[in-house]
């Protein structure tokens, strides 16, 4: 029992940023539901998760390159590209829709792989390589959708952005009113999508050699090299994963809005918000510390802010200011460690 306590204490101490973010998110979420007239209801939860899915996926995408000590400035653009591809392909018979979804995800994954190739074999710094490929992705998205629009299957859009009841009812898998089903019927589908896709890939991946190598490269690339770890494979995988998760975000955005929009400004703000979310979730921009679950929490924290604006009827004009200041204060809190450092040289890295 004592051992268990000790290891828990250690885990919390080692993941201070993540712990603070999670506790903060839970408190904010509780308070939000208390303040909200329709708090603790399925409808509010559905709305909140719906508005969070895309940024959560993009933030998870951003996590992989950041863990390497790199950065992917193209996630927003790849998300937009996938969004446009999906808006062109996601209609027709169920088989066509399925193939459309697969092509969408493959597009993003392939683009991520291309990023990885440029970083690994071209040996160009990730930040500048992805800056350039991001503009290529936006260009391709504009080719597909010069004007916003598109046609995505309406049933699918309705079923995937509501609770489980609607999903089952829409497709008639079983009697949606069955007694055994009612305890689960309220669960929002977007929440399930995040948990299944995010955790289902991240948790097993983290344990693989490639996953551990990503952490090792982020901590010290030379040490990882000398330990014989597959550095190149880890880098390629990290960027490919980033492309895949960005495509997941774009696919969901297409389903949600049933259209595609090659909006450069939107792509840019998703990229920047993803970095903010990753940092808020306790992942170090220097690499080697953190994880995708933290990014999920960070992204939800970012969205939570805008939910508060809505219920507290804060002047919309002040919202960007508050968002910016909260972000600045949050990241500066992380600076408290500089006050505790005994040797100033440790700060320079």
């Amino acid at each position: 029992m004592n051992d268990y306590k000790k290891s828990l204490k250690l885990a919390i101490g080692q993941n201070m940023g993540f712990t603070v973010a999670t506790v903060g998110l839970l408190l904010l979420w509780l308070l939000y539901n208390i303040l909200h007239p329709g708090g603790f209801s399925s409808a509010v939860l559905i709305q909140n998760t719906n508005e969070s899915v895309v940024i959560v996926f993009v933030a998870i995408a951003q996590t992989f390159p950041i863990l390497l000590g790199g950065l992917d400035l193209s996630v927003g653009a790849v998300m937009t590209l996938a969004n446009c591809v999906a808006s062109a392909l996601m209609s027709g018979s169920p088989i066509q829709i399925l193939i459309g979804a697969i092509i969408t995800l493959l597009t993003g994954t392939a683009f991520g792989f291309l990023n990885g190739m440029i970083v690994v074999y071209g040996r160009i710094q990730p930040i500048i390589a992805t800056l350039a490929t991001g503009s290529i992705a936006i260009g391709l998205a504009l080719f597909i959708r010069p004007q916003p629009g598109g046609d995505v299957d309406g049933d699918l859009g309705w079923a995937l952005t509501n609770d489980l009841y609607e999903l089952v009812y829409t497709y008639g898998w079983w009697d949606a009113d069955a007694a055994w089903f009612s305890p689960f019927a309220w669960i929002p589908v977007p929440l399930l999508i995040i948990i299944i896709v995010g955790f289902g890939i991240w948790l097993p991946f983290k344990k693989t050699v490639t996953g551990r190598t990503i952490y090792a490269v982020g901590s010290s690339e030379s040490a990882a090299f000398m330990s014989g770890l597959p550095i190149e494979r880890a880098k390629l995988t990290a960027f490919t994963m980033a492309g895949f998760f960005a495509a997941c975000g774009g696919l969901y955005l297409a389903i949600q809005t049933s259209s595609g929009n090659a909006d450069m400004t939107q792509a840019g703000s998703y990229t920047l918000n993803s970095i903010a979310a990753v940092v808020l979730g306790g992942t170090s921009l220097f690499g080697g510390v953190g994880g995708a679950i933290g990014s999920l929490v960070g992204a939800l924290l970012l969205r939570m802010l805008s939910f508060y604006f809505r219920i507290m009827s804060i002047d919309p004009l002040l919202q960007p200011l508050i968002e910016g200041v909260v972000l600045l204060v949050a990241v500066s809190l992380g600076a408290l460690r500089t006050l505790r450092t005994k040797n100033r040289l440790r700060l320079f890295r």
Binding site: L285, L318, P320, L321, G324, V325, L327, L328, V331, A335
Partner: peptide
């Protein structure tokens, strides 16, 4: 000692605000 990437980004959105 906040990474410049995130600090300047935050200040950018604060200025926008």
């Amino acid at each position: 000692r906040v990474p410049s990437m995130i600090f300047t980004l935050g200040l950018d959105s604060a200025m926008r605000g």
